[in-house]
Design a binder for these strands. Structure first.
Length: 425
RNA sequence: GGAGAGGUGACUGAGUGGUUGAAAGUACCACUCUCGAAAAGUGGCAUACCGGCAACGGUAUCGGGAGUUCGAAUCUCCCCCUCUCCGCCA
């Protein structure tokens, strides 16, 4: 969420930002409610102040008559409070709801646009493969090589689930190990996070656990949901903490499963592994001092570039436009790998600088050497989203005879340094 | 899952209805003393919000929420968390 003080002083800029991002929020109403809230707050506090002073009086009350008088007065104040406090509460509730709907401000260099069509390509790495044969999509290849079983997964769990089998299963582990090792060597702290989190934490990150827009699975009879990303568990990790500035930036590389309902997401571009209900992801997450977050965001982006260059996959880097940023991001870059099944680019990573937007809700602060405190900046970025990375690897490394080469960097994580996946028959 | 115990400021730890935002100690900061350090002494030391140019004033916060009361850290209820024992398991 944004600082209400900032909104008060920058109403027009905030409104313009909402329009740029294509987010509907009633800033005028919010500001009006803010005034109303403060007025009621002052009234309530004045009554409470009176209550407290009566409290002091009664202690020194001489006789029973005097006591009774004070108690009667106190009852009067109580009655007034019983009217005013619910008023304040309901204004506050609406105020907070509106405040949470206001998206983060946007980096001045983020391209202005409405949809992903307006995202701006910054760089392209690698050559799009020219197959001398009719290239297959990963679904066909994986079925043929028995690397995945979608049919039985449908039987057991439903559509958009999958079993990874044989080298498919091993490849997931190799990708995870490859990413974890690289990030560990870069000084990131490896973490394996819970796959479930409290709804309050999920909301703190800026996801909505309930409602028709929700992408989140709730666990019945609990206050828990399956996480859609380790961003949730890692953002919650230091919530309600004050981090000394000398400890920043704190950089984590977190492994979790990710669960998404993907409600209504059907169509040819979501077949196979592209859009699934469950996948494994290695996620980078960082807590930073405000002045260093932009630089760190570039660093996360560069690590993603390094990972996909190492994997030898052609991809491009995209600067996400205002309308496609979502609520919390100040700026966001995606990496899109070339995918046969998409006939073009498909998103494989995403890195966001959320500045203090998430930190304010999660209450994560920086303790400065001079004693002052301010909200930290939180950043996240995909290292490897296994299902999407698998698509990119398998489709780009397929051979004419139907086999699939294993990227050089993954071989050390494959049993026997396996170099190629070929048909068993 | 069952049975207990407990959650108070950076930490230890008093406090069972009214001068308790909170004793005391530790830690920390400043000063005094000292050639310097230690020790000792003196003072300071929470956060958020509201009002105010400021000085400052007000409100809230003793795990969270609701309640009883003129008044709650203290009483009641619900929830969360931690610890111990038992059960169950990977």
């Amino acid at each position: 969420m944004l600082d209400i003080k900032f909104i008060r002083e920058n109403v027009e800029a905030v409104k313009k930002n909402c329009v740029d991002r294509g987010v509907k929020c009633d800033v005028d109403r919010l500001v009006a409610l803010d005034k109303e809230r403060i007025k009621l707050l002052q009234e309530v506090e004045e009554l409470k102040s009176m209550k407290n002073s009566l409290n002091d009086l009664i202690k020194s009350a001489a006789d029973q008559n005097e006591r009774k008088e004070i108690i009667d007065k106190g009852k009067e104040v109580k009655t007034k409070l019983e009217i005013k406090e619910p008023e304040l509460k309901s204004v506050k509730e609406e105020f907070e709801k509106l405040l949470l709907a206001v998206p983060n401000m946007t980096h001045p260099d983020s391209p202005i646009g409405r949809t992903d069509e307006d995202n701006v390509e910054i760089e392209v790495y690698g050559e799009i493969p020219k197959f001398s044969f009719s290239a297959k999509n990963h679904e066909e290849i994986m079925k043929k090589l028995d690397l995945a079983d979608f049919e039985r997964a449908a039987k057991v769990s439903g559509s958009k689930f999958y079993y990874l089998k044989n080298e498919g299963a091993l490849l997931e582990l190799a990708l995870v190990n490859f990413a974890m090792e690289k990030l560990f060597q870069k000084g990131f702290v490896p973490v394996i996070t819970p796959d479930l989190a409290r709804n309050s934490v999920i909301e703190g990150i800026g996801f909505s656990p309930r409602g028709e827009e929700s992408q989140i699975y709730n666990v019945e009879n609990t206050d828990l949901s399956l996480v859609g990303t380790a961003e949730i568990t890692m953002g919650g990790y230091h919530m309600d903490e004050v981090l000394p500035e000398e400890e920043l930036p704190k950089k984590y590389v977190a492994l979790s499963h990710c669960f998404r309902t993907e409600a209504g997401a059907y169509g040819k571009h979501s077949s196979g592994l592209y859009r699934v209900h469950q996948f494994t992801k290695v996620e980078m997450f960082a807590y930073a001092k405000p002045e260093e977050s932009e630089k760190l965001h570039e660093e996360l982006k560069n690590i993603e570039i390094e990972i996909f260059r190492d994997l030898g996959i052609p991809f491009r880097v995209v600067d996400i436009c205002t309308g496609d940023l979502g609520g919390p991001a100040y700026r966001k870059y995606d990496l899109e790998a070339y995918m046969v099944s998409k006939g073009g680019w498909g998103e494989v990573t995403s890195t966001s600088n959320t500045t203090d937007y998430q930190a304010r809700r999660l209450n994560v602060k920086v303790q400065r050497a001079d004693g002052t405190r301010e909200f930290a900046h939180l950043l996240n970025g995909t290292a490897i989203a296994v299902s999407r990375a698998l698509i990119a690897v398998i489709e780009n490394y397929q051979q004419e005879d139907g086999s699939v080469l294993i990227p050089e960097v993954l071989r050390k994580w494959m049993p026997g340094g396996l170099e190629i996946i070929s048909s068993k028959k």
